[in-house]
Amino acid sequence: MKGKVLLAVLFLTLGCSSLLEARGAAGSGRPAPDEGAAALELKRQQLAEREAAVKAKEDALRKLSAQVEARIRELDAAKKGLEGSLAGKKKLDEERYKKMLKIYKALKPEQAADLMNKLDEPTVIGMLNQMDQKTAVKLIPLLTQPRVLKWSRENLAVP
């Protein structure tokens, strides 16, 4: 009987210890060594996938950035070209304007005034502003008086 009890105690001890091991692996919250390695491997794979996705997005952003910078350079070049064209046109317009003023100055005052009276008011006022005093004095009595008065008011206005 003593042997049977000893055998029963031994059996219970072995059974309980194996039961505790199984329970400890499953119920303690700690993964078994194989499960921990698998979880780590899964996390490593997820991180590698995220890293690859981030790298792909960074590459795409670099390409877009390069395209945007190239487009900016292209637009800047076009802007400089347009500014050059505009400056050339402005210079040409100024030369034409000065040439026309010389023509009007060379005309007899009556002829110049007759032509200027047929032009729009802002043009006449601009011409009077550009003319020398001697020429303007000759033209003022011959121009329509409302234009002369408006020109006088604009030039006498205090800034």
Rank of each mutant, 00 (worst) to 15 (best):
S85C: 00
E41Q: 10
A52C: 03
S18P: 01
V137S: 12
A157L: 09
R62A: 13
A48C: 03
Q111Y: 04
E83I: 02
T135F: 03
M116D: 07
M100L: 15
Q46V: 07
L75W: 05
N129F: 03
S18Q: 10
S85G: 08
V9Q: 09
R23E: 04
D120K: 12
A112S: 11
L12Q: 02
K79V: 05
R23F: 11
E21S: 11
L82T: 02
L115C: 00
E35P: 00
K63Q: 12
E49S: 07
G27W: 15
L92Y: 11
G15K: 04
T135R: 14
Q45H: 04
L47H: 12
L86S: 12
K105Q: 14
M116F: 11
M131N: 08
G88V: 03
R23P: 00
N155P: 00
L19N: 08
F11K: 10
S28W: 12
I125F: 06
E95D: 14
R30D: 06
Q133R: 11
A78Q: 15
Q46L: 14
G24W: 15
K118R: 15
P159K: 15
Q67I: 01
L20D: 06
A26H: 13
G84I: 00
A38S: 02
N129R: 11
P159L: 10
A38H: 00
P159R: 13
Q46I: 06
K108G: 08
I140S: 03
K57L: 15
P109N: 04
E94C: 01
P141Q: 03
V5T: 12
I125Q: 07
A157T: 07
Q67W: 02
L10G: 09
G3C: 08
E83P: 02
A136T: 13
G88C: 01
A78D: 10
K63T: 06
L47G: 14
E49F: 01
P109D: 04
M116N: 04
T13Q: 06
A38E: 09
N117C: 05
Q46H: 09
G3I: 14
A78F: 06
K80D: 10
A26I: 12
Q67T: 06
A37P: 02
K150H: 03
L6H: 05
K98A: 11
G3H: 14
V9C: 05
A38L: 12
R23V: 04
A53D: 11
N155W: 02
G29Q: 07
I140P: 04
S28Q: 01
A112D: 05
M127T: 07
